[in-house]
Every structure is written in structure tokens, then in C-alpha cells.
């Protein structure tokens, strides 16, 4: 197994990719938890005018029945008007695409955005839905397999790093 890329380096690359496409109107929405941490950084670095949105997509997941609700549910918070707004959805790792599908459903319950783009730190492939990120800092060369979960971790000092966890 190759060493995982450095999260800060990837974030910097993602900011470079996104910067030319961010306008006065653009709003960011981070998906709990990794995406929300990332979105905080991006929001500041890209100087986004609208306050940052965050969503917990647990209620919208298609495997809700099987998994149930995990106890650490967060309140979704969309502090701007969704109507006619260009939105960039932020997640740490793109895998099957089911989280993105759930997030899209949730976003549309707040109004009709002008467009929605997807920004991710890592694309690990193995998609099960027709979803493709517009901004992506790193693509894994080979599949990890379903037994491993790749996710962003936040240390006590606020620094971000990628971790691989056996599930």
C-alpha cells in the first residue's frame, strides 16, 4: 500500500482548481464531517461571500433502513438562499456516489439552485451511480476494496490528514 497523500497539499491543489470558477454568487456546502472541515478551509481561502452551509445526509441515505441513524447526527444548516444560487458541494472522499446522491436530494429541499458542482479531495473510484466531480485533487490509481474506508481525520490542533480504516 502506497503512503496516503498529504491532506494540506491536496487542499492547496483543490483551491487552485476552484479559484477561477468561484464568483460573487457562489456558495459552499460541506458534507459532515470530513467535507465540512474541508469546506471551512476552502471558504476562507476562496474568500466566499455567502456564509458556509453544512449538511448531514443521514436522513437521505438509501441504506437508512439497514444502517439506522447513527447517534452523532448533526443539524443541517443552510444559512443562505438556495434559490438560483451556484453551489459547490464539498466532500472529503468520493466513492460509490451514494452520499452525493443523498446530498443533492437534501439541497433541493431548500430551494432550486442555479447549478451544483462537486469538489472532493480524493476520488477512490468504484462508483455505483452516474456522478463525477468537477474539482478533484487526487484520484486513486487502484481500487481499495469495500473492506477499507478512506476518510479525513481532524487532530486536536485542527490539522487534517487522510486515514485508511478497516471496516
Amino acid at each position: 500500500m502506497l503512503p496516503l497523500p498529504d491532506a494540506d497539499t491536496l487542499l492547496a491543489a483543490l483551491i487552485d482548481q476552484m479559484a477561477p470558477h468561484v464568483t460573487e454568487d457562489t456558495a459552499l456546502v460541506g458534507i459532515y464531517t470530513g467535507g465540512a472541515w474541508m469546506a471551512e478551509r476552502l471558504h476562507e481561502a476562496l474568500d466566499i461571500r455567502h456564509p458556509l452551509g453544512t449538511i448531514d445526509v443521514s436522513f437521505y441515505r438509501d441504506d437508512y433502513g439497514a444502517k439506522g441513524l447513527h447517534p452523532q447526527l448533526r443539524r443541517s444548516d443552510i444559512p443562505f438562499d438556495m434559490e438560483d444560487r451556484p453551489v459547490i458541494l464539498v466532500d472529503d472522499v468520493l466513492f460509490t456516489g451514494r452520499t452525493t446522491r443523498a446530498a443533492l436530494n437534501e439541497l433541493f429541499d431548500y430551494g432550486r439552485p442555479a447549478r451544483v458542482d462537486l469538489a472532493v479531495l480524493v476520488d477512490r473510484g468504484e462508483r455505483q451511480l452516474p456522478i463525477c466531480p468537477r474539482f478533484c485533487a487526487h484520484t486513486l490509481a487502484a481500487p481499495l476494496g469495500s473492506g477499507q474506508r478512506l476518510q479525513l481525520k481532524k487532530a486536536d490542533d485542527g490539522s487534517l490528514s487522510l486515514r485508511l480504516i478497516d471496516v
Binding site: 452523532q72 447526527l73 448533526r74 443539524r75 444548516d77 438556495m82 429541499d109
Partner: peptide, 13 residues
Amino acid sequence: DTAAPFTEVAERE
């Protein structure tokens, strides 16, 4: 704990 995030749903369109 489960009820807490549901309070926000009332504020949505």
C-alpha cells in the same frame, strides 16, 4: 439526541 437535528427541518422550504 435523534430529535435535535429534526428541529431544523421546520425551517426548510
